[in-house]
Design a protein around this nucleic acid. Structure first.
Lengths: 228, 228
DNA sequence: ACATATTTTTAGATTAATCTAAAAATATTT
DNA sequence: AAATATTTTTAGATTAATCTAAAAATATGT
């Protein structure tokens, strides 16, 4: 019998969002646990509200929680979180590829769409889209069984002069970064070569697609993940 | 200045559902007002909950409500209700035409999708689908300005022997009716001709697409709307 | 038109999700 | 290790949406 059974309890969108936040803060960032304050910051709520929610998620056996000791997902909670990621990223793919939204316009809409409850819907959508493995921001789309495709990507900021790679993912992607990248005409698939490193502010001169040169700040170069 | 301005208050999904119910019970059914009990039945809630909600919707100026006198939509409320219908029906069209769902499987999913808040999304979806005027059940899809295409349709139950028409809409469409129609292979576009009327139970013998004959009960024949 | 039935509203609780302020636990610094 | 700072939890309120039970208003029937 499979260890991964389909969840038979109804969660509210809020509960789902907390699980997503915990996933991001622990597993995705490689930390053992997520702390109350970190979750509060991620969710834009008061710490007291987080404590309350942790108690409830713990009662539902979705997370492991001990007072003052932080929190991490149990198997069921992890399943919920990865399914949300799957739904979010498939919807983003749909919005960009089919409805022709720009990649900096889709996050908030996908944030609502991901809470629509139907396994059938998401699997049909997946097929309709041709089972894409990465979303428009280069983020991996979890499979129906919860596994997440992994890749070996290198931040632009760690390359030496002369090295190059293809932009394949982003570390974080606030809309502000994506609007910036759109303005300087860089997107997933763009070739980037390091021309010069500037020690003073850690900025870097790069050649884009072998045809034009620009300057990127440290903050930007840390966010660009390349396939070497 | 246009009388129809875009709504700047955030409504909850529940508030939206009440407005939809009031629209259905008053305007769509041609009644001047909707009553508390009728809304309670439509929403599957206690009458007391309805009274409470009517007070709040009235405070927001979305409905006209006087105690014990029933309720009807004001302009803003009507706008919200028709936009929900527009969203619901466009999503149903998407689910059936693009994701290949059956017409008896889409209602509940569309019920969730219709609450996703984005005008841009729904207008892009409309264009992507080719601006359809009717959904998979034959219901008219309201336009972006709130107007609703009308047609002159005749219930099968009012036809005389020998008359025929094309199935173009349904009076009501519970999933049970749609599963039945699927089973007997009748759908929007099917030609139906009256062969014989049975006075006793108001059932009717009909010829389908000029090639096979079946019996339809009174309840079914009242629900089938034909273009003569 | 009065008694009875039905409908609607009010009163008082409950649950989920949130808040602020205060208390308790844990971590840091000198 | 004591004092101080930070983090987390508890206590107590609030809002939206719901309920049941009782009261009030309206409608119906003889």
């Amino acid at each position: 019998m499979s260890k991964v059974q389909s969840l038979n309890m109804r969660l509210t969108a809020t509960e789902e969002n907390y699980l997503k936040a915990i996933f991001k803060l622990s597993e995705e960032n490689g930390n053992p646990t997520a702390t109350t304050n970190a979750i509060a910051a991620e969710m834009n709520t008061a710490a007291a509200s987080v404590t309350d929610m942790l108690r409830r998620l713990s009662e539902k056996d979705l997370i492991h929680y001990e007072k003052y000791k932080g929190v991490h997902l149990k198997e069921q909670g992890r399943k919920v979180a990865t399914m949300l990621l799957r739904k979010h990223r498939l919807w983003e793919y749909f919005l960009v590829e089919k409805l022709k939204f720009e990649w900096d316009e889709v996050h908030d809409i996908a944030e609502e769409l991901e809470h629509v409850r139907s396994e059938e819907l998401i699997n049909r959508l997946d097929n309709y889209l041709g089972q894409p493995r990465f979303d428009p921001h280069g983020d991996p789309i979890p499979n129906a069984d919860g596994t997440i495709p992994t890749r070996q990507l290198t931040p632009l900021s760690t390359l030496k002069t002369g090295q190059h790679g293809v932009l394949t993912g982003l570390q974080e992607h606030p809309d502000s970064l994506m609007r910036y990248l759109k303005k300087v005409n860089i997107s997933i698939g763009t070739k980037i070569q390091v021309l010069e490193l500037h020690e003073f502010d850690e900025s870097v001169s790069v050649r884009i697609d072998d045809e034009r040169d620009i300057e990127l700040s440290e903050k930007v170069s840390k966010n660009l993940l390349l396939k070497i």
